[in-house]
Amino acid sequence: MKEGWLQRLQNEVAQAWAVAVKDVKVYYLRPGMIMFGFLMPFFMFFSFSVRREMAAAQGVARLLALTVFFTAAAAGPFIIPLERRLGTYDRLLAAPMSLLTLLLGKAAVGAFFAIGVSAVALIVGVVAFGAPIAHPGLLTAGLLVGSFSFSALGLIFGSIPTRNPGDVQMPSTLLRWGLLFISGVFIPLEEMAPAARAVAYLSPLTYAQDLMNHAVLGAGLLTPWLDLLVLLGSGLLFLLPAVLMHRRSRRLGY
């Protein structure tokens, strides 16, 4: 019963897809997901944006960057430890699929959530506040690539060997806030001092914000291609520590 590589690839894609769809069904209504995934970006947005005068389009660009970032990165650290605790993760690990397939499936979950939440944010922004969208195609690409990238970031924390989502929430929240505050979300890049800007380039969120600026406002500081490339590259890079930590879990017995 030898199968060709094409057949195998087809199977792995189907498996990753099944994992993602299952997770969306199982976890979208969980309080942890609602709290850290769906409400957090809006809290962040309102607590840092109320005092500033801002055009609707600017607000939409910022909100989209935040939803993509927070929602996507919230899924992994919540779902994987929970599945480990319930023992359902063993089912996935024992199944005939590669670890990468499993991780891509899990990355897709965060991405689905993020795309859903940012779609809501987008519709509200466009319909209620009349925000114009400069490049819808770029916006779509940005949302897709950005949510994949940040979902993969979440996987790093989800891969920490533990059965308790609480253990992971703390470090993952700290890192997300750190990446948020050094990024160009709340202070535009062009207004930053050179040193601060250099630091901002370390945060992938900076590129997501710049990309959203291009897509919604039609102008940004970097080129949109570079933004997309950096996001895609960092997403792939984030998979590496996730794989290594899964190996570690397999040694430790989680």
Binding site: Q15, A18, K22, Y27, P96
Partner: peptide, 27 residues
């Protein structure tokens, strides 16, 4: 096939959905 110590079924899914999901996982 693997039946672990704790029944690791997805409690938010129906029996049918649990089986269908596993069927896809196991091709």
């Amino acid at each position: 096939g693997l039946v672990p110590e704790e029944s690791n079924v997805y409690t938010e899914l129906t029996a049918w959905e649990n089986l269908m999901f596993t069927a896809i996982l196991y091709r």
